[in-house]
């Protein structure tokens, strides 16, 4: 991805979703989880996606993450249409590997790899050399202030450190977009805000768009832009964009 996509990123939204729909099942038992979602996120922007349980947040995240195939609509990443009624000659697995980063509620690091290899893993899966992957991993760990834990086992890290390593892993392939699924849920206020601060810093530094799905009242005021999702539809509103420092 890279140079070409980053060049595009200056002009095109990092992610652009139009009339995205997802229906589970068929006939009388069919359930419309997404009923026409529209959403745009610019490079370097961090937006919040909030909504009650069952509103379609996770379904939207799975569709954007190329884990679940939408039923209709369009998704474009950095100006390139990747889904338009079907994946556009793209392997969803390769799409996830090369162009989407994931941060989960729990860090879900691979326990049998050390910190550096956890971060290097997406690059290694993409076929990069071990040397290059580890160099990039060390850079990211330094950017996230966990370079001193580079050789540590996952179990030796605190919860906050693990979450920072998970963010570093999501950034490893320099994806235009990161999907964060309730990344602050298990953290107290101070640590939750620290994670949001890091996400904002990384978004700025790497011009990555970050969509944060959250219920967390502590961090909602920090977003400059919010998408509410209700009954399978999104409603955009301006956030407070409160300075969390």
């Amino acid at each position: 991805m890279s140079v070409a996509l980053q060049a595009q990123a200056t002009s095109a939204p990092a992610i652009e979703v139009a009339d995205l729909r997802k229906r589970y099942g068929t006939g009388d038992t069919a359930v419309d989880a997404l009923k026409g979602v529209d959403l745009t996120v610019q490079p370097g922007e961090v937006i919040g996606l909030i909504g009650p349980s069952g509103s379609g947040k996770s379904t939207l995240l799975k569709c954007l993450g190329a884990v679940t195939e939408p039923s209709a609509g369009r998704i474009a990443l950095s100006g390139e249409t990747v889904y338009d009624g079907g994946w556009q000659n793209l392997d969803p697995r390769a799409l996830r590997r090369d162009r989407i980063g994931f941060v989960f509620q729990a860090p879900y690091l691979i326990p049998f790899l050390d910190v550096t290899d956890n971060v290097a893993l997406p690059l290694l899966l993409a076929g990069r050399s071990r040397r290059e992957a580890r160099r990039r991993a060390r850079e990211l760990l330094a950017a996230l202030d966990v370079a001193h834990r580079a050789q540590a086992a996952v179990a030796q890290l605190s919860g906050g450190e693990q979450q920072r390593v998970a963010i570093a892993r999501a950034l490893a392939n320099q994806p235009p977009i990161i999907l964060a699924d309730e990344p602050t849920a298990p953290l107290d206020s101070e640590r939750a805000l620290a994670v949001v601060r890091i996400l904002n810093r990384m978004a700025q530094q790497y011009q990555t768009a970050i969509i944060v799905v959250t219920h967390d009242e502590k961090i909602i005021p920090t977003f400059k832009r919010l998408y509410h999702i209700r009954d399978g539809r999104t409603y955009e509103e301006a956030g407070e964009g409160r300075d969390f420092d």
């Binding site: 993450g65 697995r93 996830r96 090369d98 994931f102 691979i110 326990p111 997406p122 899966l125």
Partner: peptide, 16 residues
């Protein structure tokens, strides 16, 4: 299983 799901999510091939 959780680690395998994460590996698949971040793009690991089935053969890996």
């Amino acid at each position: 299983l959780r680690e395998i799901a994460v590996l698949k999510l971040i793009g690991a091939r089935n053969r890996t």
